[in-house]
Amino acid sequence: MSELLNTPERLTPDTFLRGLWQENPVFTMLLGMCPVLAVTGTTLNALAMGLATTFVLVGSSLLVSLLRHWIPKQVRIASYIVIIATFVTLVDYAIQAISLELYAALGAFIQLIVVNCVILGRAEAYASKQRLHTTFVNSLGMGLGFSLALLALGTVREILGQGTLLGVPVLPEGFQPWVIMALPPGGFFVLGSWLLVFNWLGPRRARRDLVASGATIHVR
C-alpha cells in the first residue's frame, strides 16, 4: 500500500480499517508514545485524550488535504504545524469549557498533542497527497485506532490500579489494587504487554495468510 500513496487512493473499507489494526499508530507504528504512557492512568483520561487527538487529527488532515494544491513544498511543515496548533488550541479551550477536572488531569498533554507525530505524519504522508473524502475516512480510522490503543491501556491500568472502570468499581470488595499500574511505570508495563500480544498475533496472522495463499513455511 505504502508505495501507492503518491497516487490518489480509492475509497475502500481498508482505508478506514488500516488505522485500527494493520497500521495502528500505537501498536504497529509506535507513534505518539508520550500521551500513550502519560495519560492512560484511567479510562476516562485515555478516552478524552483519544477523542481530542482524533478531533485534531481529522480536522488538520482535512484542512491539509483541502489546501494540498496551495501549500508549496518549502513551507509545508510550517503550515501543517500552524494548522495542527490551531486545532489543538480549539481542543484546549473546549476541554476547559467542558470540565476543569479533566483539564487538570490531562495537564500539559493537551497542548502537547501539537507534537504528536501521528498527526504530522498523517498530514505529510497522506493528507497532503490524497483527496478530501479518503483523507477524512483514513484519518478518522487512524484517530480511532489511536483512541482504541489508549483505551486498551487505560482500562487495564484502571482496573488493575484501582479496581474500577470509568470510576465504577468492577472488582469484588477487598481487591488489592496494583499501585504501580496507576503510576508511570505501569504505563510502560501495560504498553509492553500489549505490544507482546500484538507482536505474537501479528506474525501468526501473516503466516496463516501465507499458508492460505499456498506458501510453504519453514518453522524452526
Binding site: 501549500i71 508549496p72 500552524v82 488550541t89
Partner: peptide
C-alpha cells in the same frame, strides 16, 4: 501567501473559539 493564509485562518479560528 500560503503561510499568511494559513496564519490568517489560524488566528480567525482561535479568536472565534476564544
Amino acid at each position: 501567501l500560503a503561510l499568511g493564509g494559513v496564519a490568517l485562518f489560524a488566528g480567525l479560528a482561535v479568536s472565534l473559539v476564544d
